[in-house]
Structures are given as structure tokens and as C-alpha cells.
Nucleic acid binder design. Structure first.
Lengths: 345, 345
DNA sequence: TTGAAAGCGCTAACAA
DNA sequence: TTGTTAGCGCTTTCAA
């Protein structure tokens, strides 16, 4: 089924200028809401612009003013694990400002990160918010030359290029390990991603294993996977691991979604949770509210990270903030015990 | 904790031109991959650009060429109900092309849709993909003047401005109603959003009620809610409705997430599903794979909608496609019976 | 194959 | 309060 449509050329300032009988400059002033125009002229111009359906050309405006009200947000994935939270915090903070977030996704691939960064920086954004502290040399070079504030988010275990907001994932791993051991669990299994390019998952794992070691323990068993997370994946991993190591008394998952899948599996199998078997994930994902039990987890403070990152960009991208020093904000990973972990042994 | 960073001005074509000892024009040609440059010159320019860390200024490029490789994608929400699927289809299709999707969110608010559209169109995108067929007059005017192909997605019950790809939500409602009645259920309850500005949810509801009427039935009871969907919300609605109308034998939810919450609640309460009580949602959300039962649903073909929409834009935004006629693509909503609905009475 | 000139649509800076 | 001029960093077009 087809139907014709008349093509039209977008209007220019000049069209409005001629229709309203004032200079282009005056139209420009009115549309940018500058105060130095008489009320009568303003009214007439606004009316004309609306009537014609004029939409300003930001490309020309940006080139002339060398101001672009975009903030590049570069993240590894849009999965509902982290993206909605971080993005929510950013949007909320920028909502009432002139700045607008624009998102690029890297799929945890350094080469894609480079490509996405290159594309986004070529639009000369007013700021860059990018996940993680690990970037290729080329990416770091681009960021250093961006001519705009750069905020690396999620992680604080490393050296930022400019600003950073996040939590220590090593510490998050340690906190969970300590809580598990304090609760009296001893035969601990790990289930999670293969962690190839997921540096934060790796750091949590390292912190976890290290803290166990300090308490004289080591992982009893582990099961890795590659590819996307999902409840089904969590079930599968859990079944495999428990079949191999039935004497485990705690399962530590690298994220809440596979943890939740594991929880559903264990409940169906009739395991005594948290009495004989404890479970924990990582992230504090809202989406999972409403499952039969609340999974123990560590809140990764995604919304707050988004908010703070946007604030740092905002301050530096706004009139007078150009010279602000770089800054690193460390938030505190917080244990949420839920219903799948005892409080004490 | 603070640490200083040296600010740098972004490089221009001229910097590369001087460093490489050729004209700006030649550098421009090389960087745009045009063939009419000698291999030696090309090599030298490429080397220089890389060494300096040059990132082209697309703003200037776009202004000069009046070509912008962006596709505006305007959707009501980033919830994991529809966004990831649609976006996946779009990204996948545009991945290998010069076009890049940029997302704007309307929160189901007409005034926000206008604002987002205005912002996005002011960047003169090569195409617009926008959810729904219902828009304010102002929004419709902007779209008609966009000077770029417009594809309205998700819904085909109405008149598109240019192109459209989607399913008939009325038909989806009818299909579900027929399947439920055919399976022998008779006391049917509806649980869903208040549907203020969610036109597609409203159309499904209308189709559903209409099809029931044709079979001589009407809704036995219903429960509406406002605000975000979540498993917990589904539990709550279900509890309320079943307390009020314990004799219901089917619960039709306006989306899969609240449906899944309801399912968890009903299983815990020991209802015989699908024997004595049937359940169904809408969307076909992958995320829910791995729950104790597969919820009956209607697949809304989100990925395919994304793909087709991107293809329509691509064809029209590419050399020679400017004059292509408008086109409407109707996909077929497909029933997925899952484990929560009998096949026959 | 390379370069020079003009201009994309707007805004900064200055003039009236 | 309003208008004029120049130019943002590129690409198009035309000339060499």
C-alpha cells in the first residue's frame, strides 16, 4: 500500500525574516530568547515562525557559535542491568538544562568504543560521559583532545583522564565476600561472565577472591559463561554447578539477572534458602522486584552515578566552569541482604 | 580528589593540511575516502591525521554538504518492554551503513513529543522513525516539513504521514480474545494501564472487547493502574482483582511484565494454571524467558518493525531513493500460547 | 590529480 | 532596539 507525499525544503532564518519584515539577526535573537528585542517585534516574529513551521538549523548555529548542547554518553550495553539507571540519573539532571544526552553503545569492544567515540566527538559535544577507566590509547588520546569535560563512570579503581564517578568494584567484591563468610557460609561457588572485556566484573571477582583468601578460604567451584545474561542462563549455570558440586552452601553470581534465574531454579528444586544455601548477585536491579524472594545484592548506585556525572559535566560546560579542576567521586557500594542470605552463621 | 588536565583545542582540517603539506581540499578528499587522490598522498595524509589525533568536525561538514547521517528515533519510553527490540532491529540494519540512530524519549506526553521532535529535527536528520500514528498538529506539521523520510512504527491502525511499519493492535486484541474464548474460558478479567496516552494499549483493549462482544461475552471485571509496570505491580493488581472477583477464569494483562508478576502471584497461591485459570499478556518479551511458566502472549514483532523501518529510511535517504513513494508495511501479530492458556475448552 | 574560491545557515561583534 | 559584516570548518564547484 503506497500513498504520495509532497517533499518540502526546510525553512531558513531568511524565510522567517522576510515574512516578518525584520532582519535575520532580529529573528535569531527572538528565537534564542535574548531580551534585547521589543515586545512587539518579538510577538510578530514568534507568530510568523510558528505559522511557517520554522525549525532552526542547529548545525549552522553550532558552527557559528561553536556551542553544541550535546553530551555524549558512551556505555557498553543497553541491557536493563545498568543502562536505564545511569541514563535515568543523567536525563533527570540535564532535563531542565540546555544540554541533551546522546547515547552510543560499545558492546564491550575496544574497537567499537573507538569508533563510537570518534563519531560522537566529531559532533563536538559539550561533554563526554563514558563507562569505565580502561580505554585504548587511541580512545584516551581522543578524549584528552575532546576540548570538553570528560567523566568516566561506574568504576574508580584506576586513573581517570579527567573526572570520574563510580564505586570501587574490588571493594564491592570484598564486601560481599566478607558478608558471606560472616554469615557462616564456607563452600562458596561463583557463577558469572567470562569477563573478557568486562573490567568491572573482573575487578569484583578479584576483590571477592582476595577477601576470601584473607579469611582463609578459596572458591569451592566456579562456572563461567559467555553471551547475554538472562533468567534462563542463570538457571542453566546453577543446574550445572550444583550437579558438579552439590555440597556448595553459597552461590555468588556476577549479576542480579542470572542470580534471579538461579534463585528460581533453586526454589523449584526445594533448596532451603537462605538456611542451607545462600545466593547473591550484583547491581540492585529494580526490575526484579516482585520475584518470590529478594535476592541479596550490592547496589551499584547507578542512578546516583548518572546524576553526579551529569552535574560534573554541567558545571564544566556552563559559562564560567571551563577552568574547574578534574574531580573523582567515589560512591559507597551498599550491601542489600534481601531474603537469600543469612545475617549471621 | 582532584587532578589537573591540560585543555586543548580540537584540530581542524587546516592543521592536518599544513602538517602534511597538501591543501585542505586534498585532506578532505582523503578522509572522505574519495578515490581521486594518489596513493602516496593518501598515505601521507592518513598518517598525519592519525598522528595528530584529528577528528573531523561533522558540524561543519554537515553544513557544507547539507548531509547529516543521523536517523532520529522517537519512542515513548526506554522500558525493556519495547525499546530494546525496536532499537536492536534498527541498529542491526544501519550498522553497516553510514546512518546512525539517535534516540529521543517522549514519556507518552504529546508536549514532550513536540519538544523532542523539534530538537531532533533541528539537526536535520536524514530520516525520522517515530512511534505511533497519533501526533499533535504541530508535530505532524514538523514531520511533514522534515525534508526527510518519516516512518511511523508499531501501529497501523490509522493514517500515516509518510511511511509506516507495525501491527494492528486492534487485531492483536481480537486474536487474543478469540483464542481465549475458543479455549473455553468465559469469565474474563482485564488488568492494564489506564491507557491515557497509550493509544496502542487502548486499541488492543478496544479490539479485545469488540471481539468478545461478537462471541456474546463481555469483560467480567477489570483493574487499571497508572505509573510504571513491574512484576510487583502485576502481583498487586492480580491480588486486588481476584479478591474482588474470585470466579474469574482468565486474566488478560495489557503487557507481559505485569502478566508475569500476576503469574508468579497465582502460582504461589496455588491456582491451577492453565486449567482453572488462564493468563495472557502482550509483547513477547525475551527478558521473561526462564520464569516458572511461559506466559501466553502476542508477539508484537518489535525487532522486525525496527528492521523494516530502518530499511525504509535507508532506501529513501540513499542516493537515488529521494523520490520513492510512501509505503505502509503491516506485520502479523502472532499468538504464543506458552504454558498459561489451554489450547481448547 | 590537485588547488582556489565561494558559500552552507547561522551567530559574534560591532555600528547605527 | 535593530542592522551590517565577517566568519565558524568544512564541501561543492570549477579551474589548472
Amino acid at each position: 500500500m503506497t500513498h504520495p507525499i509532497p517533499p518540502r525544503r526546510p525553512l531558513t532564518l531568511r524565510d522567517v525574516s522576510e515574512a516578518a519584515g525584520v532582519s535575520e539577526m532580529t529573528v535569531s535573537r527572538v528565537l534564542r530568547g535574548r531580551g534585547d528585542v521589543s515586545a512587539a517585534t518579538r510577538e510578530r516574529v514568534l507568530e510568523t515562525a510558528r505559522r511557517l513551521g520554522y525549525v532552526p538549523n542547529k548545525i549552522a548555529g553550532a558552527l557559528a557559535s561553536s556551542r553544541v548542547n550535546l553530551v555524549a554518553v558512551v556505555i557498553p550495553s543497553m541491557s536493563n542491568m545498568v543502562f536505564p539507571g545511569v541514563m535515568g540519573g543523567i536525563s533527570e539532571t540535564l532535563e531542565t538544562t540546555a544540554l541533551q544526552p546522546v547515547v552510543g553503545v560499545t558492546d564491550y569492544k575496544p574497537e567499537k568504543e573507538e569508533k563510537v567515540l570518534y563519531e560522537m566527538l566529531s559532533w563536538r559535544p559539550s561533554g563526554v560521559i563514558i563507562a569505565g577507566l580502561e580505554h585504548s590509547d587511541a580512545a584516551r588520546a581522543m578524549l584528552a583532545h575532546a576540548g570538553a569535560p570528560v567523566v568516566e563512570i561506574m568504576d574508580t579503581d584506576g586513573d581517570p583522564i579527567d573526572c570520574a564517578v563510580g564505586i570501587s568494584h574490588r571493594r564491592a567484591g570484598r564486601i560481599m565476600a566478607d558478608a558471606i563468610v560472616d554469615a557462616g557460609y564456607r563452600r562458596i561457588g561463583f557463577l558469572g561472565t567470562a569477563m573478557g572485556m568486562d573490567h568491572r566484573a573482573r575487578k569484583r571477582f578479584e576483590g571477592f577472591v582476595e577477601a576470601l583468601a584473607k579469611r582463609g578460604l578459596e572458591l569451592a567451584d566456579q562456572e563461567f559463561y559467555a553471551g547475554g545474561s538472562g533468567l534462563a542462563k542463570g538457571r542453566e549455570l546453577t543446574q550445572t554447578l550444583l550437579a558438579r558440586a552439590p555440597d556448595l552452601d553459597f552461590l555468588y553470581y556476577s549479576n542480579d539477572v542470572i542470580g534471579a534465574g538461579g534463585m528460581l531454579y533453586c526454589l523449584e528444586q526445594g533448596y532451603d534458602i537462605p538456611g542451607k544455601l545462600g545466593l547473591a548477585g550484583f547491581n540492585g536491579v529494580e526490575m526484579l522486584q516482585g520475584l518470590p524472594r529478594r535476592l541479596a545484592t550490592i547496589n551499584s548506585e547507578r542512578i546516583e552515578i548518572g546524576r553526579k556525572a551529569a552535574e560534573l559535566v554541567l558545571a564544566r560546560a556552563t559559562e564560567g566552569g571551563e577552568a574547574l579542576a578534574s574531580e573523582t567521586i567515589r560512591l559507597t557500594p551498599k550491601l542489600e541482604r534481601g531474603d537469600t542470605m543469612r545475617a549471621t552463621g
